[in-house]
Simulated scan of single mutants.
Amino acid sequence: MEDRRQRFADLLASEGDADQGGRMSRICALAVAELKVTGAGATVLSASANGAAADYRRALVHATDPVSSGLEDLQLTVGEGPCRDAFVAGGPVLVPDLAAAATRWPAFGPAATGLGAAAVFSFPLQLGVVRLGSLDFYRDRPGPLSRAQVTDALVLADLATATVIDQLDGHASSDLSWLADSHAEVYQAVGMVQVQLGVSTDAALLRLRGHAFAHDVTLADVAGQVVTRTLRFRPEEDPA
């Protein structure tokens, strides 16, 4: 594994200096080439103090293509999927045939298949017991990763973890403000809906997710409507 780590580090270094966002994009591109996957994405997550499932916060660092970006957005919208499972479990989540695992993620599975994913793989970004996010891959046709590809994915996840740690630059691991990402608007919208409905953060996020899912739009789109005040939620009523 050390030989592979050095090879990947040399490949990344040979592409020249770049900011950490550029380094993450190179890691994702390298993953696509080496693992023979269709796309890759890197996501940073944090959990609430009580670990409530609805209160996981997510920010997309990089995605290689629109499907990868869509898969990350979908998981944020429905609140389930391989990225979250890898983060919670602290180990890889390997699903070589998404259609055959439909019951695992009742909301994510069919929608992910509709986006064009046939297999999904997620590897946690972690240092010791501290978990920071996940490195996620998809294929447009079913098929497992080989043992060598899993080993390479673990090495790339370690390199991605080091990149995220460099980006934290003094921020707490639960503070996602250092990421310029549209998902930050989601958490602003959650706060607004929480006030509008007089409910908990979890309940506000669930209402946003439900509206997004019912109207077949992303959670980010719904959040944008809330923040710009074109959409308002009312207790026991449909939003208007």
Rank of each mutant, 00 (worst) to 15 (best):
L71Q: 01
E72L: 11
D73H: 13
L74N: 05
L74W: 11
L74H: 11
L74F: 13
L74A: 11
Q75S: 09
Q75F: 11
Q75V: 10
L76A: 15
L76W: 05
L76E: 13
L76H: 10
T77L: 15
T77M: 14
T77A: 15
T77F: 12
V78L: 07
G79V: 07
G79C: 10
G79Y: 07
E80N: 03
E80K: 01
G81L: 08
G81Q: 02
G81P: 08
C83R: 02
R84N: 02
R84F: 14
R84K: 07
R84G: 03
D85Y: 11
D85M: 11
F87G: 01
F87R: 00
F87K: 01
V88D: 14
V88N: 12
A89H: 15
G90P: 12
G90M: 13
G91F: 14
P92V: 15
V93Y: 05
V93T: 15
L94T: 12
L94S: 14
V95D: 14
V95F: 09
D97C: 09
D97T: 12
D97N: 15
D97P: 08
L98R: 01
L98P: 04
A99Y: 02
A99E: 13
A100P: 05
A100V: 07
A101E: 13
A101R: 03
T103N: 08
T103Q: 11
T103S: 14
T103R: 10
T103K: 11
R104S: 04
W105I: 00
P106T: 01
P106S: 04
F108K: 00
F108C: 01
F108M: 00
G109T: 14
P110L: 07
A111F: 01
A112Y: 04
L115Y: 12
L115R: 11
L115G: 05
L115N: 09
L115H: 12
L115Q: 12
L115F: 14
G116S: 10
G116P: 06
G116T: 08
A117N: 03
A117Q: 05
A117W: 03
A118C: 09
A118F: 03
A118Q: 10
A118G: 06
A119I: 07
A119E: 04
A119Q: 04
A119R: 04
A119T: 05
V120N: 01
V120P: 01
V120H: 01
F121W: 11
F121K: 03
S122Y: 03
F123W: 10
F123G: 00
F123E: 00
F123A: 00
P124W: 08
L125W: 12
L125H: 07
L127M: 14
L127K: 15
L127G: 11
G128R: 06
G128Q: 02
G128H: 08
V129T: 14
V129G: 09
V129E: 12
V129C: 05
V129M: 06
V130T: 13
V130S: 09
R131S: 12
L132K: 12
L132Y: 14
L132P: 06
G133T: 05
G133Q: 02
G133K: 04
S134P: 04
L135V: 06
L135P: 02
D136P: 00
D136C: 05
F137R: 03
